[in-house]
Design a protein around this nucleic acid. Sequence first.
DNA 1: CATTATTTTTAAGCTTACTTAAATTTGGAT
DNA 2: ATCCAAATTTAAGTAAGCTTAAAAATAATG
Lengths: 220, 220
Amino acid sequence: MQNISEEDYLGIIYKHKDKNGEVKANLIAEKLQVSNAAVTDMLKKLSRNGHIIYEKYKGIRLTEGGEVYAKNMVRRHRIWEVFLNQIVGMPWDKVHDEAHRLEHSGSDELIDRLEEMLEYPEYDPHGDPIPSKEGKVPKLRKHVQLAELKQGQAGTVIRVNDFDDQFLQYISKIGVKLNEPVLVKEKRRFDKSLQIIVKGKPWNISNKVAENIFIEIKKK
Amino acid sequence: MQNISEEDYLGIIYKHKDKNGEVKANLIAEKLQVSNAAVTDMLKKLSRNGHIIYEKYKGIRLTEGGEVYAKNMVRRHRIWEVFLNQIVGMPWDKVHDEAHRLEHSGSDELIDRLEEMLEYPEYDPHGDPIPSKEGKVPKLRKHVQLAELKQGQAGTVIRVNDFDDQFLQYISKIGVKLNEPVLVKEKRRFDKSLQIIVKGKPWNISNKVAENIFIEIKKK
DNA sequence: CATTATTTTTAAGCTTACTTAAATTTGGAT
DNA sequence: ATCCAAATTTAAGTAAGCTTAAAAATAATG
């Protein structure tokens, strides 16, 4: 395959499949910023060439081959992210976009060399697992949304969603960082917003923000 | 511009312009492995958007803007080459293809960071000059084709053509390397082939090969 | 300088990945 | 169970970048 678009579609399907391994066309359209009609077209194509299982109006799921392919795209993306962050020194709120530009280029050999150079990282700068060349996906430690923590509970940030640059910039600014502690000082009923303590400083964040930060709870 | 094809065309035009700054359509078609008709189409487009000066059946030349654009593509390509060679440890006979895949991706910021990381290299791994961000092109030292050396003359390799991977692999194998000395031991009239000494070892090379290796002549 | 040969352009058509607008199907609420 | 809204598909059309085949212009050769 030479195809940027196909690769993007497969990557999105992989990253957004639910517990049943299914995705809705709508979501794909939104994530890729294309029309629903464009998605239907591409789904037919991906179905024809055996990457997905697709029946009209039904949920979409990857075939075994499609999964291998998609996982490799995610692998590429995340290895680029680690590389950009660790070697080039790019901040975590910028690596996503840059990696997206690069993930379709570069040969598999290059990706393997970068991986070696980085000493086989298991997670990208946002805490997402990097599939190995053989397709193994490192397990994520048990975690919950920051929004689910109770007042007074503390934990360690182990993953954040990387869908939006602005979000990442914002949480960087307030000091949220991978593998760093956070404490929930206060929770408010009416808007579900919360006050958290990061590096000793208090911050108010919305529920929306707290839903996209994932925490490993500290044992008492 | 978002366009891989346009970028490729402009890069080729820049790299292959003659002393008058002109290129023939034919050459572009050959270098890019597309039909002449495709070239005509694209030339019209590049002319329309002000990147080249183009009149039917006449030679093609870059406008000022086109030159800036094209030079930037060459810059990107060559910085990737140095990066792949020096940081990733990829041999010089592989960097061209890999860099070609990467040169259209990556933001300008990334290229700048890579350049900084590499300490502003002036030449790529084949000895080709790297345009600066401001568009300055480092001068090449005075040089001649290896094929032009007389029997008994010696010199230093300062550039090789990177058009063909096989060629690069071949000269690597016989020990030809940038900034290393070569001596012409023998020249043969009938086929213009020559015997050279590299690292103390003798090798027979064709005239064709010798035409693509560039030498700075040693003063006696 | 006339006639080939080579380049370049035109013309017509193809594929990919999109678009908008209209039609269809599905799923949820009453 | 019916109806409505949301999701999905169809239909028709567009733009980019190609292709081949034929026509036109330029360059090269005797």
